[in-house]
Nucleic acid binder design. Structure first.
Lengths: 124, 124
DNA sequence: TTAATATGTAAGCGATTCCTTAACAAGGAG
DNA sequence: CTCCTTGTTAAGGAATCGCTTACATATTAA
């Protein structure tokens, strides 16, 4: 991954930096349907583990581990609030997926990409 | 522990009915970096297994299995040509990823889209 | 303080993943 | 024909995954 001398604190998110290699990356994190559902859940509002558990047929421990994996991927951040730990969505790392996908956009529809190239040439 | 009887599609958890589905979906297929590289390889042209093997430090058998997984996810199609089996990219299923990502776009703010302009490409 | 609530972690279990070697089938070149 | 290449499958090993129960810790309520 090449980065153009990006001001480090543009987002306050250092999870994008690959220098530190967490065991779980974003692609792995979203490969599990339960974790994908959790991300959608947390999109609305931050939630405690006890709240999240209500939405899934698994134990609190399992939910905890899923959140830990999401956290390693930088997709979630935790915050202690009394005896609760509340989790919130951090969508930033999803850009890695988006970016990877963008490579293939030109192959989705040959005619469409031909049109796009034509328009872009027109803009230049 | 009580479970809220949640409507099946509220969270997009319809992936729970696994009984009839192929074993590997698109999210799982692209969770492996080797498979992501293979897809990029095949974007240029169709290739035989023997050709693909040259690009990875794994055996023919391992490459074969990766391609089988990609095929189950619909991302690749095979074609017999003499004693070779040539594989070509089918990018269409990647739309499923794109669709899932689009849900989160509303949560990307200004600074995030600024970041996207700085990020160039993953070295997958 | 005592009890109830909320979370974290260790240990373990069965399934899956990624890879290997070995064996086998079949097309193409000599 | 024989030899070489190409692909597939079987069997298995090491590691990881997803989940559980059991236990430990920390905060709040009564």
């Amino acid at each position: 991954m090449k980065l153009k001398q990006l001001p480090n604190n543009l987002l306050g998110v250092s999870a994008i930096n690959k220098a530190s290699q967490p065991k779980h990356d974003v692609f792995q994190a979203i490969s599990d349907p339960t974790r994908r559902s959790m991300l959608k859940l947390l999109a609305d509002r931050e939630m405690s583990i006890a709240e999240i558990v209500e939405y899934f047929p698994i134990t609190r421990t399992a939910v905890n581990k899923h959140l830990h994996i999401l956290s390693e991927a930088g997709l979630v951040r935790s915050r202690k609030a009394g005896r609760e730990t509340r989790y919130m969505l951090i969508p930033a790392p999803l850009i890695q997926i988006q970016n990877w996908l963008s490579f293939f956009e030109q192959y989705w529809d040959e005619r469409l990409s031909a049109l796009r190239r034509f328009v872009e040439e027109d803009n230049d």
